[in-house]
Simulated scan of single mutants.
Amino acid sequence: MGCFGLDIIELRQSQLESFTRSCGLRLQLVEIDNESVIECWVPKSITTHKPAVLLIHGFVFNATFEWEKQINALQKAFNLFVPNLLFFGRSTTQVEKRSEFFQAECMMKMLQQLNVKEAHVVGTSYGGIVAFRMAHMYPGVVKKVVIASAGVCMKPSTNDPLLKSFNASHVHEILMPNNVQNLKKCMKLATHKPFLFLPTSIYEDFIKMMNHNWKHKVELLDAMLVGSKNAAPLPYLSQDVLILWGRHDGLFNLDLGYELKKHLGEKAKLVVISEAAHQPHIERSKEFNKFVMKFLEGNSK
């Protein structure tokens, strides 16, 4: 349990929640049906002239850890909705479905419950895959789409080199490591600049957070259709799409970004962010935010 008996990650979570409240958001549990609840940060008050933006986090962090550097920057121009996906935070379901399609469906139901008629959607990594599915499933609701560092174009063999380097048989051993050594290795792949030395106890606190709802998160990974042998041909999107990628991404190679751009054609623009790896929204947040703001506020992509 952290340093001096304190769980540093829990303390940081408390700080992030206070920060998010100071940015004009409040935490709400949204019952989307009789079996599912989504925890979401919503505006304390809706500003009618501001467009809605939905921020969808990746697989490792929850909403506030993921989007800390975007919330304050974007809330000035947009009504922000920042949910925890199923089995992150207090979001949960009794339904047995686990695919990214179901996550997208739950995000849509949440927007309906919150009376959001249309929204731009921004997703990173796993959240980018969910954002892609939302855009295809609900083109009348989803306006512009930002997809960052997301393996939408994965194939069944895409993760083979990564699994081999970790001597792992399943991707959850990488995304939800059970030891400090693998966590450090994963962090090196996800970040471009060397990270600061941290006490072992803090790494252990990170592992505890990442392994919350371990069984259900493994089920989420197993149920993903993107990159699976049973995947249908990848659909096209009608929306304008901004693709953002860190040049040094060690988890999802930049080639996947180029493949997604090629697949979507003229509807998409790819921006490669230098001096960033899998988390350009964290490592190069000002640059990331600038591209997102320009794209979402512009009349075209």
Rank of each mutant, 00 (worst) to 15 (best):
V121D: 07
F132E: 02
A119S: 15
L114T: 07
V141C: 12
K143S: 13
K144D: 12
I147S: 02
S149A: 14
M134Q: 09
A131S: 15
S125Q: 09
G128I: 04
K117H: 13
H120Q: 08
V142C: 10
V121S: 07
F132R: 06
K143R: 15
R133G: 01
H136N: 14
V130C: 10
G128F: 01
K144Q: 13
V141H: 09
A148K: 02
P139G: 11
M137T: 11
V141R: 11
V116N: 12
I147Y: 00
I147F: 02
I129V: 15
S125L: 06
A131M: 06
I129W: 00
V116R: 12
S149Y: 05
P139T: 10
I129T: 11
A150M: 07
F132G: 01
V122E: 02
E118P: 03
A131H: 05
V122Y: 08
N115D: 14
G151N: 09
V141G: 05
S149H: 10
V121F: 07
H136V: 11
A150Q: 08
V121P: 04
E118A: 15
I129L: 09
V145D: 03
H120K: 06
V146H: 01
V116I: 15
F132L: 04
V142E: 03
L114K: 11
G123H: 05
Y126F: 15
V142I: 15
A119W: 02
T124Y: 01
A131R: 03
K117F: 05
G128E: 06
M137P: 00
K144H: 12
H120G: 05
R133H: 12
V121Q: 07
E118G: 13
A119H: 06
Y138P: 01
G123S: 09
V145T: 14
S125V: 04
Y126W: 14
S149F: 05
R133I: 13
V122M: 08
L114I: 08
T124K: 00
A150N: 08
G127C: 12
G128T: 07
V121R: 03
M134C: 15
I147N: 00
K117S: 14
